[in-house]
Design a protein around this nucleic acid. Sequence first.
DNA 1: CGTTTTTCGAAAAACGTTTTCTGAGGCGGG
DNA 2: CCCGCCTCAGAAAACGTTTTTCGAAAAACG
Lengths: 357, 357
Amino acid sequence: MSDKGRITIRDVAAATGHAVSTVSNALAGKRHVNEETRQQVKEAAERLGYRPSVVARSLRMKLSSTIGVLVPDVSNPAIPEFIRGIDDIAVREGCTILLCNTDELVERQVSQMHTLLDRQVDGMILISQHCDTPEVRKLLDGKTPFVLIQRRSARFRDDYIGSDNLQGMRDSVNYLYELGHRRIALVTGPATSSTAQERLEAFEASIAELDCDGDPDLVYRGDYTVEAGYEAMHYFASMQKRPTAVIASNDVCALGVQDAASELGISIPADMSLLGCDDIDLARLRRINLSTLRLPKREMGAAAAELLMRRIHSKRPPTPREVIIPTKLVLRESCAPPADGPNAKRPAERRPLVSPD
Amino acid sequence: MSDKGRITIRDVAAATGHAVSTVSNALAGKRHVNEETRQQVKEAAERLGYRPSVVARSLRMKLSSTIGVLVPDVSNPAIPEFIRGIDDIAVREGCTILLCNTDELVERQVSQMHTLLDRQVDGMILISQHCDTPEVRKLLDGKTPFVLIQRRSARFRDDYIGSDNLQGMRDSVNYLYELGHRRIALVTGPATSSTAQERLEAFEASIAELDCDGDPDLVYRGDYTVEAGYEAMHYFASMQKRPTAVIASNDVCALGVQDAASELGISIPADMSLLGCDDIDLARLRRINLSTLRLPKREMGAAAAELLMRRIHSKRPPTPREVIIPTKLVLRESCAPPADGPNAKRPAERRPLVSPD
DNA sequence: CGTTTTTCGAAAAACGTTTTCTGAGGCGGG
DNA sequence: CCCGCCTCAGAAAACGTTTTTCGAAAAACG
């Protein structure tokens, strides 16, 4: 037995009088080993409380049962659910996740990716705006598989799990249009986010298709923060001709819009409608009550992890796969017909919480 | 050079014509090595893009530069900030964090702790209710240092970072008392949480000291969820003699209280005051506007990580250290004098957002 | 000048696994 | 009866580091 701390495979080998290779095989079950000795070994391992060293195994097998997860900031409300989804699959597969915050800083991201690679992660999942930076690409080129979530590269084709931003934004605009809105504003996310960009384009396209006011001043460039939403609302409120509805590119900044509206005495939805995007957990609270486009974040995280696992286990580098997850409008009470619109008489009618597929 | 993938220390040894041990020493700077050869080695390493294998190093040094973080659920709003604080220190120290969700299930926690130990983490930080379970204790007994956050063991003395629940609850009760409230209710957290328990005891003590209504029915046993708050409020509303103020043991359940209040047409703070605990990020939103007891979560995470690092680097097992972080009342607009109380005439006056120390 | 110390590098051991190589024995087929 | 094949298990190599040991040359010392 070992008095030097860890109980190793040699200890159980010694205990059973077998060779270490036999013990290894008996426990892993790779090579055939006599049933009797296998039992002996298992029993001894159990009795001694033997636990194989994952790091020794990693060194030998070049597989660490670890996946790296790179996010902008775990304290951002939209992020943790993705992580949770990833973790669900990871534990199922016997993996553990190594978490890194980048704060959307390229240098930090590069350095974090290095430490992940140095640790020989089996794969990586990235939520990041910087997928095109040459420095980042250089690290991605290697043989470590990776999957992108929500932010896609413009120049490269990668494994990617994203939301159907086109359809989602179209649904949003149409919904507001049918309520009677003709002057609809948008608060965008940062230009470096592919999802934000897609949402912007879809917005402009949808507006153009309908007889809506295409005033470019109705687009406010934000950055997904509460503060951006807050400032956007102040901006909209100051306009000569205010929008009657605002779409926020994510819920967090919709909260900022709400905040400013309260401060300005603008009632939502009586004076102005508001539609978010993501469906963060708190959107459902009565005090928030935000109609929004639901993104199944946990499922997306899980999907990313599933895909990554496939990549890790399959030998041949396959063609990149892009999974686009549909979104659903979740109608709460932040939207209503505009005061001067065609449907003005009716208040926002109560609808089922989740729109039918 | 290596055509088999990784560039190893042998490659740079070969490139410079030196021995691997020399390269190792030159790079790590542990042992003295001639300045000229050191430069040669560094230059070659740089040129070849050599990156040392962390797992090989871990195996040899029995230090993985990795710390395990065990939390109930990363999607719980209070959790990510702790993690972020931990990560702040971790990256500074060249460590990476291995994240595990336990869902507060003992079996999951035990299994996760095993995988952390198997991976030879240098230390662990735990936010968990199950610190007294024998199975858990057995794993903690080993030589891997650990630090507890927010949930402490009743039977053991461990390194612990917690909040000053006694003072915090006393401040809360006193504040409501001074507003004129005499019938104050409490929604507790789960009995298995030491912090929840401390808050409960402090509540009862504070109430007893003042001439408040000590009605035991004013304590509702919750479990830190929105739903618990929701049900608690329904319960309070149904009482013959309603409380005029409610203290929620954490913000998440305060949100549930708010929710139910809106639904029941009970106005906060006009009809009832509400005081939360934690100060989650969203509490500051105008729509929520929750007065609450601020817990510096990021700082607490950082403090835990700092302490853990000290434990990791110091040889001698020192006496356990308990750090109790003071809390601050953050006054927003969910509290006001009771309608029939001594101060009834005044509305909730606007105070500075953060109370003076 | 002889001896001891110091400086510098190389060689080799160790960390704990998995895997490859080797060999012993049993058994069936020609 | 010999050959080859199969089953089983032991010995040893390998994974990529750090650290210990060792040795040679240079420097210091009396």
